[in-house]
Design a protein around this nucleic acid. Structure first.
Lengths: 339, 339
DNA sequence: TTGAAAGCGCTACCAT
DNA sequence: ATGGTAGCGCTTTCAA
């Protein structure tokens, strides 16, 4: 039989209230009693029932995370940062996957909310505008709704916060770097259409071209899905151009690695004949052939910051939207322009 | 204010019990009332409070997963399978990371247990023997302890189950394949020392050598950690041998990809001069240069099966330990022996 | 078929 | 400093 607070009270010859106080280091209890009861609880292997506690305090001490696909290295890294931060604060992390589908995403969010998470994070939402009027439980005292933090795809709203990276700046920096290497024909392999970060990176790419005195050309932008599978098609399309690019910026590392593999297969030397720059700096990008030059996502920081925003909102504090900077990681897939 | 079962009862002019029955499709209620109440609840945006429900039923409808590092592609895939299975069964998934540290692992398990998970899965445990006497809450009715399923590192015990892949068979198959390609000097880059799957794969490697009439040699086994970082050192060590190997089986794909990168950097052609076989079939292995031949882990199936075992144990059914087979995925990193 | 009432394990308020 | 008591939102007997 599981041992409860009443059992301890009976054995110690005190009331349940006293035991409760002893266990949560309440000030109004004598130090000896507290020590004695804590020792007893310890020796009995007592573990508090969080559901009972939660029922009265109105807190579950769980945060929820809705993710597109935990198998995506970017998502995994963000989640890793979030988990660490949550655990440090004594919170558990409940997660659910959307498989990149808006309907599944909303359903996942509701499931987590049903499990009474105290706060919700959504990583790379595919339906950011739907959270403003998602039914959320109100706090019993303050009547404030469960805070929602949109990671990497934010829109403002009541009790709706956002944490994201500066995609525009990152892409612009990548283009500037390629220009410094002498490249003038720079292509872009786009990611999932309609996605916000794709739009921003595309913007940054365009701004980068303009800022560096390079005209943009529609033919240099090819559509992809942010997957390694994009590589072969993108490469074929770009190389078939009358005036093919000497450098390619990819929406993300996954696509860039697919591109690298396709180039190797078709005997195209990188960076000799073609420079490739990725985006995200996933762990394996350092071990690609050649090692991938890329824009680093502040992944762990995104997750950690999201948790902190949740917690701050929960504590009733003011929460500002956060924009974190990425950084260019120079490796070997981009080099001087040969032409 | 959040709406509760009593609110609905008041509005509908019935008792809370009736509402409760209507909401859970209880048989002893008139169909019209049920429909009416369900409609009302729906329109009011009612969401049941799982904590209150859990407090009385003794179930949280959450499963826990302790993982080493969610950033490890293998772990992520297993978790993905588990999440899908859990969600289909109406369960949420709470997870915590151990960072490969036994102490953190046990702490994580206790945290999840404290959050009242109905069942616990531990993926790639670093302390499998500690679960037999981990204090677990007993079921209120049957008094059965919370079931624990060890994924990929199982030991039997009371309410302790295991789901794993056949590592020995997989490694043996890889060696047999390399032998068929003509290789006779086959090396092994080992993974984390003391790990069970490392031991099993090493066993399979040795058995494979024997079964194919090849003597084993200590010098052909180099220690690693199952990370891309293993690559450079392993390659250097093996190529420095008087009689270097013509093929290498790696503990996992991460190490194999590191090896591939190291080979490319030092101008070693793969598979021309050296054949490389990985283990796990992580998503990116197909996009390595060259695409990696590997033994597939039935990852999603492992996660799914783990959840099913948990649920079966929860339902009071008999649970057998499960061993799932891997499969050889032939790609391009292994070829005929040139010598 | 429905309602009343007890109680899940805990916290927090009001007494003392 | 401690105990009594109410109640969190729900399910589940037991009666009607």
């Amino acid at each position: 039989m599981t041992i409860s607070i009443v059992d301890i009270a009976r054995i110690a010859g005190v009331s349940p209230s006293t035991v409760s106080r002893a266990l949560q280091d309440h000030p109004r209890i004598s130090p000896e009693r507290r020590a004695e009861i804590q020792r007893l609880a310890e020796s009995l292997g007592y573990r508090p029932n969080q559901m009972a506690r939660g029922l009265v305090t109105g807190r579950s001490y769980m945060l929820g995370a809705v993710v597109t696909d935990i198998t995506d290295p970017f998502v995994a890294e963000v989640l890793k940062g979030a988990e660490a931060a949550a655990r440090e604060a004594g919170y558990g992390l409940l997660f659910a996957m959307s498989n990149r589908d808006p309907a599944q995403e909303l359903a996942a969010a509701e499931t987590l909310l049903d499990h009474d998470v105290d706060g919700l994070m959504v990583i790379s939402s595919r339906a950011p505008h739907r959270y403003a009027d998602l039914p959320r439980r109100g706090d019993r005292e303050t009547n404030a709704q469960t805070p929602v933090v949109l990671v990497n795809n934010g829109v403002a709203g009541p009790r709706l916060f956002s944490v994201r990276m500066d995609n525009v700046g990152g892409a612009r920096e990548a283009v500037a770097y390629l220009r410094r290497l002498g490249h003038r024909r720079i292509a872009f392999v786009a990611g999932p259409e309609g996605g916000r970060s794709n739009r921003e990176r595309l913007d940054g790419y365009r701004q980068g071209l303009v800022a560096n005195g390079l005209g943009s050309a529609t033919e240099l932008i090819v559509q992809g899905a942010g997957l390694p599978e994009d590589g072969p098609r993108a490469l074929a399309t770009l190389l078939a151009l009358a005036d093919p690019p000497t450098a390619v910026l990819c929406y993300n590392d996954l696509a860039a690695i697919g591109l690298l593999a396709a180039a190797a297969r078709t005997g195209r030397r990188v960076p000799g004949e073609l420079s490739v720059v990725g985006f995200d700096n996933i762990p394996l990008s350092a071990y690609a052939t050649p090692p991938l030059t890329t824009i680093e996502q502040p992944t762990a920081a995104l997750g950690r910051t999201a948790v902190e925003s949740c917690l701050r909102a929960l504590a009733g504090g003011a929460v500002a939207d956060v924009v974190l900077q990425g950084r260019l990681i120079v490796r070997e897939s981009a080099g001087p322009c040969a032409r």
